[in-house]
Nucleic acid binder design. Structure first.
Lengths: 180, 180
DNA sequence: GCCCGAACTGGACGGACCGTCTCGTTTGGG
DNA sequence: CCCAAACGAGACGGTCCGTCCAGTTCGGGC
């Protein structure tokens, strides 16, 4: 439907705009003008700003495969993973982008489920596989506990992230699970 | 500034509207008309729909004290607590209300911190105190783990809540912590 | 009970963005 | 080179924004 050049210009524009001003300020007219594209072209391909943002996100991370470290030391690997995650989440532009998406999926069920299955699930599944490989029982629950606390701290802004906390958190979480 | 009758009519209206249609459909003009109040009156007291919603939330739960069961059996008490939380979170109108607030605090830092300190912190502190009373080390972290997984499951809509899961989750979380 | 200021109503205002439409122009594969 | 698909420019009525004004009601103090 849309030309590749149009699509990529729109993707770049929407990501820039969200990282600059957040999701609240994002408008279709703003995207169109920033991408140098007419509103008509925008609406021809995407029904809403949610759709544009989501499509841009998919296009951005569609190519790269999910990579989870596996050195044999589960705790160290998880620490590295969580540290990388935390660093990405707290980087200001990415923070704005993530919060935009978080806000967005609260009032858009189809968007939430597609984002969940196509972006989140692959990432979580890869971590789950790594945890399962180490012999942890209930690996899904372990991953949920692992990321749950991170999400809690990030979303509710209760306490800041530190390396010491990440290490203690990983150690504690692993203590909750048996190995067969 | 505002008369009590005005304030309470606005509070009732905004809560009803959010529970009916979600936050995305909430407008100042809608609140004004539903509350039988002029826009001028609305803007005289509250600067934005966020402020109205937040004020309504505070007014709704300002009176009641936070209550955490304490039968002596920590696991049972936490199960009851989490089950009650989960039930509230999944009740459709309350679900819409919570998601509205969640979406809202993503793009409004002052609102987020005020909500956190005045609504969230008291609740979490009460649970933390209950956990600490049972001799758990790092009670704050225990509570974070406990609610983190719930938040993860609710926010990312990965898996549904069941009584069995809540029980297993509480048991697992407690296993991660020492008692002195 | 009346008075006066504070609080409120109702409506109008320009402005931003919405989503749709028309019409003329560009693009690129056969 | 040709033609259909894709695009740009811009106008449209509509909703909600936030502010302003002029007239009305409320309620505590003398």
């Amino acid at each position: 439907m849309a030309r590749d050049s149009t699509r990529s210009r729109v993707h770049a524009a929407v990501l820039l705009l969200v990282m600059e001003n957040g999701y609240g300020q994002l408008t279709m007219e703003g995207i169109a003008s920033r991408a140098g594209v007419s509103k008509q072209t925008l609406y021809r391909t995407w029904p809403s700003r949610s759709a544009v943002l989501f499509d841009a996100l998919l296009g951005r991370s569609g190519g790269e495969d999910v990579e989870v470290p596996d050195t044999g030391d589960l705790a160290a690997d998880l620490e590295a993973l969580i540290l990388a995650t935390v660093e990405e989440m707290t980087d200001p532009p990415m923070n704005r982008l993530l919060r935009a998406v978080t806000a967005d999926i609260q009032s858009d069920d189809p968007l939430a489920s597609e984002l969940s299955t196509r972006l989140l699930a692959p990432q979580l599944d890869a971590v789950t596989a790594r945890v399962a490989r180490a012999g942890i029982t209930d690996p899904e629950e372990a991953v949920e506990l692992l990321y749950g606390a991170v999400l809690h701290r990030w979303l509710l802004r209760t306490r800041p992230f530190t390396t010491a906390w990440v290490k203690a958190h990983v150690a504690r979480t692993l203590r909750a699970f048996d190995r067969h």
